[in-house]
Amino acid sequence: MVELARKLPLPQRRFPASPVLLLLAAACIFLTVESLRSTIFAQLTVAGVATGVVYGSLALALVLIYRATEVINFAQGEMAMAMVYVAYQLTLWGLAYWEAFFLTLAIAFVFGVVTQRVFIRPVQGRSVIAVVIVTVGLFILIDGLVEWKWSANQRFMQAPFGNKIYHLGNVPIARQDLGTIVITLISVSALWAFFRFTKLGLGMRAGALRPAAARLVGVRTNALLAVGWGLAAVLGAVAGLMTEPAEYVLQPTLMQPVLLYAFAAAVLGGLESPGGALVGGIALGIFLNLLPSHSWGFVTSALELPVAFAALLVVLLIKPTGLFGHRTVRKV
């Protein structure tokens, strides 16, 4: 009997607390039922998912860096914004949108790697505050550079998806929302596959979990930290390029609200959990999209941020490490 029990496939990783899963399942059922009852509700939900995956992918970029170095990169949004300007410049030089898109992703990777090497590495291993301040400095620096080069005036880019509307039953779905969801999910899955199946990805996971032990088996953890920043920058660039068409205009403040929501999404998911970040982002996107029309007129656009963060605070007070985070044992 004991032998049999030992052979049973054990769960690969700890599942998030089941009340959270139940809650999510309930939310999904509620959304589906309501969507079937009301076309407008369905429309808002789909649009919510589209904004949500964008929050989620930027949140994922934050989580990526947080897992590797326990540091929140405050410049993540501005890095993404700068990359959107790069793409814009490339289209100005005559590249087609999707050529510019992929070239930008490559540039973003290099940009992330270089940023880590030049600015972050010198303060790596110092106090968390020191690193946070450096990322705040980066935030201001990138902002200044972009405004210097392109000015703060609004710019207009080609729309990648056009304004075609599909119909699913009675529910109109914008091609743009659909495109955003598809592109974001593709990049997130690619990242997941990279971490799951490649040697480099495995090394990065090992380095994030136990840097000392990883170095002993030959993982060049320092070099991989830079790769992590590169990947985070790529993910951020995707988020940025998907935010731009939703906002219709390009300006230096493009990613600031997105960054705030991405923070919220990452914390909601537990900061340690990539899946949590994505789920957190989508939940937040839907929540914010449905809120104005379902709060008896109380929540106007001015209150969106406070309400989102109040909700976040409530979650944190109930579960101080987010929905999918687990308490780590603290050394005294």
Binding site: V134, G137, I140, G144, E147
Partner: peptide, 22 residues
């Protein structure tokens, strides 16, 4: 001397101070 130059200098300064003066 432009308004944006300020941000560049400020940001750079913050980073440099943090790197050089822990």
């Amino acid at each position: 001397g432009s308004a944006h130059g300020q941000d560049v200098v400020f940001g750079l300064f913050v980073i440099v101070v943090m790197i050089l003066l822990p």
